[in-house]
Computed example of a mutant assay.
Amino acid sequence: MSVVIEHAVQARLVSATPRMESVPATLRYDREDPFAVTIDFPAPATLEGADVSWAFGRELLVAGIERPSGAGDVRVRPYGYDRTVLEFHAPEGVAVVHVRTSELRRFLKRAQGVVPRGREHLFLDLDEDLAELLRDTR
């Protein structure tokens, strides 16, 4: 059975203009994909005018609250006393947002209630994943 939690946050979009614009975002955690979290930005908040989702490791978010983490498309680092920076790297450019660290901690605590850290492997359906891979080879 799928258990999904969603957590709405306000992200501050860092841009070349002196004022940081606040944009809505939704953090999502799904027990069926226990190692990942997703952040969704609605179409009005994106340059493309389309909904944008980024999936990345839950552990990256956990680590990034405390210290700079990530070397790929998503990077996370603390910023001051109460903010965390999330950087999203794509061929089109880099998006940088600030999110209140307290909101990220609250989201991660809820995710921990769904799947405790270190227990993610117990929630994987390896038989179903293997069947899906084999189905694509036929």
Score class of each variant (00 low, 15 high):
Leu133Ser: 06
Ala131Trp: 05
Val85Pro: 04
Pro42Phe: 04
Arg135Trp: 09
Gly113His: 07
His98Arg: 10
Thr17Ala: 06
Ala36Arg: 02
Gly72Met: 01
Ala90Tyr: 06
Glu66Cys: 02
Glu32Pro: 04
Asp40Met: 11
Phe88Asn: 03
Glu48Lys: 05
Phe107Tyr: 13
Pro42Gly: 01
Arg31Ile: 09
Ala90Leu: 09
Val114Glu: 08
His7Pro: 07
Ile39Asn: 01
Arg58Glu: 03
Gly80Tyr: 05
Ser2Gly: 07
Ala50Gly: 06
Asp30Met: 07
Leu108Cys: 04
Ile39Thr: 00
Ser53Cys: 02
Ala71Glu: 11
Asp30His: 00
Leu47His: 10
Phe88Trp: 03
Val37Leu: 03
Arg100Asn: 12
Val74Asp: 06
Ser102Asp: 14
Thr46Ser: 02
Asp82His: 08
Pro34Cys: 04
Gly93Glu: 09
Ile39Gly: 05
Thr101Ser: 14
Thr84Phe: 02
Glu48Cys: 09
Glu21Tyr: 08
Gly80Ser: 01
Gly93Arg: 05
Ser2Arg: 14
Leu134Trp: 10
Val94Ile: 15
Gly64Met: 07
Glu92Lys: 10
Pro91Gln: 05
Val99Thr: 04
Ala11Gly: 02
Val3Arg: 10
Ala111Gly: 05
Asp33Gly: 00
Leu133Phe: 13
Leu47Phe: 09
Thr137Phe: 14
Asp33Val: 02
Ile65Tyr: 01
Thr46Ala: 00
Val85Gln: 13
Glu103Trp: 09
Glu132Pro: 07
Asp127Ala: 11
Phe107Trp: 11
Glu103Ala: 11
Asp82Pro: 01
Ala45Phe: 06
Gly70Met: 02
Leu108Val: 00
Arg77His: 08
Pro78Phe: 05
Arg19Ile: 14
Val52Ile: 11
Ala8His: 12
Gln112Tyr: 08
Lys109Val: 15
Val52Ala: 14
Asp73Gln: 02
Pro116Val: 06
Leu61Ser: 01
Leu124Phe: 11
Phe107Ile: 10
Asp73Pro: 00
Leu134Lys: 11
Thr101Pro: 05
Val97Thr: 08
Gly118Cys: 01
Thr101Asn: 05
Pro68Val: 02
Val37Glu: 07
Glu66Ser: 11
Ala131His: 08
Leu130Ser: 14
Gly72Cys: 05
Arg106Phe: 15
Tyr29Val: 01
Val94Phe: 04
Val23Asp: 07
Arg106Tyr: 12
His121Ala: 14
Val62Leu: 11
Asp40Ser: 12
Phe88His: 06
Phe123Pro: 00
Glu48Trp: 07
Gly80Asp: 02
Arg135Val: 03
Ile65Arg: 09
Ala55Ile: 00
Leu133His: 12
Arg110Pro: 03
Leu134Glu: 15
Val14Asp: 14
Leu47Val: 13
Ile5Val: 09
Ser2Thr: 15
Asp125Glu: 08
Arg110Ser: 12
Ala45Gln: 04
Phe88Thr: 06
Gly113Glu: 15
Glu132Gln: 15
Met20Phe: 12
Asp82Arg: 11
Gly113Ile: 04
Val114His: 02
Arg77Val: 03
Ala71Val: 12
Arg58Gly: 01
Leu133Asn: 07
